[in-house]
Design a protein around this nucleic acid. Structure first.
Lengths: 138, 138
DNA sequence: ATGTATGCAAAACATTTGCACCTGG
DNA sequence: CCAGGTGCAAATGTTTTGCATACAT
């Protein structure tokens, strides 16, 4: 019952918000741009303005429902906040994204921040490479 | 003699290229956006078009003279390629940037990429936080 | 009812490109 | 001289915003 999530976030339960949340939940792509979501909505016959999608995603971000990433693509992508922090491994050829979490790296980061007098608020680790997909091997 | 760098990169030694390289070298800000560089040039009285700055920076990047970063600011920033890979610690309040390198993290990353069948090509680790500057403490 | 949301079009940015002119080697 | 570089203006792509209308509670 994701409507609860919206209400809890202090957002009215409207059609655009429900649809967008639903797409983020059921899509097999876990990281979607505003445009990606817009296209899916068009296919479904739901006519939601791109501006609304941006507004809703920004609200979702503020509410902690989604996380916005700036991968090198030039477009921001959004993923549902799962509660479990993780980092990303991205295939530069096919765009495949693998999530991972490494406690040793996390610990080291905290150590580094502390050593430099920083109170850590967030971090972003992205590893770019070529995955073992047949079509990506040259 | 940075002119050599330009020649070695197969680029003609022109005024805009020299100026831009010089700014990147002498500026106390090691990470500058195209706009930052443009402003410095205006102050110096050198009228170089913003388009040229973007073109030159892109060429420098291809030539391996500079590295382009996409920090969350929406603008790309460029830093001189020092030859020594490093990651960044950024203060979200004052913008201060500290560079660091941690061998353990680097090693772990390779391990993770390999474990997931990725041939690593690059990576980006950015830690965001609040630095110990007086003015940044609340 | 009424405060919020949405749609649309226009604006705001960052970046790129076309093209006529200029310049370095 | 001549290929390549630059300036300017216009085009592009992404995201934001103003405003009149529509909707949830």
């Amino acid at each position: 019952m994701e409507n609860q999530d919206l209400k809890r976030a202090g957002l009215k339960v409207t059609l655009p918000r429900m649809k967008i949340l639903e797409i983020l939940e059921i899509s097999n792509k876990k990281h979607m741009s505003a445009e990606d979501i817009y296209k899916v909505l068009l296919e479904t016959g739901d006519e939601i303005g791109l501006a609304t999608i941006y507004r809703v995603l920004t609200q979702f971000e503020s509410a902690g429902l989604v996380i916005r990433h700036h991968f090198e693509s030039g477009q921001a992508v959004f993923e549902l906040e799962s509660g479990k922090h993780h980092d990303h491994l991205i295939c530069v050829k096919c765009g495949k994204i693998v999530e991972f979490l490494d406690e040793a790296i996390e610990a080291k980061q905290n150590e580094i921040a502390q050593k430099n007098g920083f109170l850590i608020s967030d971090h972003s680790l992205i590893i770019y490479g070529i995955c073992d997909n047949k079509s990506c091997q040259q």
